[in-house]
Deep mutational scan, measured.
Amino acid sequence: HMTFVALYDYVASGETDLSFKKGERLQIVNNTEGDWWLAHSLTTGRTGYIPSNYVAPSD
């Protein structure tokens, strides 16, 4: 899985979304859904959809 880092805080707007904090590391499970990607937080262990423009590839 690709690892990304959150650029901003995001508060989930629905049950399927994943809240995260700036700097949180996320594994992308599925990024074929356009602007919303299914991600797994390496910080909280939770999985949900995130806005793709809130994250950047982590080196």
Rank of each mutant, 00 (worst) to 15 (best):
V11W: 10
N53A: 14
T16W: 15
A56D: 06
S41F: 01
E33R: 13
L18P: 05
T32V: 09
I50K: 00
L7H: 03
G45W: 04
M2Y: 08
G48P: 00
N53Y: 10
S41A: 03
E24S: 02
Q27C: 15
S58R: 07
A39M: 10
W36E: 03
G14T: 13
E33G: 13
E24H: 04
K22V: 08
T44F: 02
V29F: 11
T16M: 14
Y10N: 02
F4P: 01
G34H: 12
R46I: 07
N31E: 11
V11E: 14
A56C: 09
I50N: 00
G14C: 15
S52N: 07
D59F: 13
L7S: 03
W36P: 06
S58H: 14
D35N: 11
K21N: 09
V5C: 06
E33A: 13
N53G: 10
R46D: 08
S19T: 09
A39L: 01
Q27H: 15
S13N: 11
G34L: 11
V55F: 06
T47W: 12
Y54W: 07
D59S: 12
F4W: 13
E15G: 08
K21I: 10
T16G: 14
F4G: 04
A6R: 00
V55R: 01
F20E: 00
Y54V: 06
A39P: 00
F4S: 04
W36N: 05
R46W: 07
L42E: 10
P51R: 05
R46Q: 12
Y8F: 12
A12S: 09
K22E: 06
S52Y: 08
D9A: 04
T47Y: 09
Y10A: 01
R25Y: 15
S41R: 02
G45S: 06
T3E: 14
K22L: 05
G34C: 10
G48H: 03
G14P: 03
V55M: 06
R25M: 15
E33L: 14
T16I: 10
Q27G: 05
D17H: 13
T3L: 14
G45N: 08
R25D: 05
Y49S: 04
T44E: 03
H40C: 13
S13V: 15
T44C: 03
T47A: 06
E15P: 15
R25V: 15
I50Y: 00
A6F: 01
E24A: 02
G23R: 02
T32W: 09
L26F: 15
S41D: 04
L38I: 07
G45T: 03
S13A: 13
T47G: 05
N31F: 15
L7W: 03
N31Q: 14
L42C: 12
S52F: 08
Y49G: 02
N31P: 12
G23S: 04
N31T: 14
F4C: 11
Y10T: 01
Y10F: 08
T16E: 12
S13P: 07
S41E: 02
V29W: 13
T3C: 11
L38T: 03
V11M: 10
Y54R: 06
T3F: 14
N30E: 11
Q27T: 12
I50D: 01
E15S: 12
R25A: 09
W37P: 02
K22Q: 08
V55S: 02
H1F: 13
N30G: 15
V55K: 01
S19E: 06
P57R: 08
L42Y: 08
V29K: 08
P57E: 09
S13C: 15
T3G: 07
W36R: 10
I28Q: 03
L42P: 09
Y8G: 05
T44A: 04
W36Y: 09
V11T: 12
L7A: 04
M2A: 12
I28M: 06
S41N: 10
V11G: 05
A12N: 05
I50E: 00
G45C: 09
N31I: 14
V11R: 06
A56V: 14
L26V: 04
K21C: 11
T3K: 06
D17E: 15
T43A: 12
V5N: 03
T43V: 13
A12P: 05
I50S: 00
H1V: 11
S52P: 08
N31S: 13
Q27D: 06
H40T: 15
V11S: 10
Y10H: 05
V29S: 06
T47C: 12
Y8H: 08
V29D: 05
A56N: 06
F20M: 07
G23E: 03
D17N: 09
V11C: 12
P57D: 06
P51N: 05
Y49A: 03
A6W: 00
R46P: 00
D35V: 10
E33C: 14
S13E: 13
A12Y: 02
Y10I: 02
Y8A: 10
H40Y: 14
Y10P: 00
K22I: 07
T47V: 11
A39N: 00
K22M: 08
E24Q: 03
W37L: 08
A56Y: 11
E33K: 12
A12R: 05
Y54G: 06
E33W: 10
I50M: 02
T43L: 11
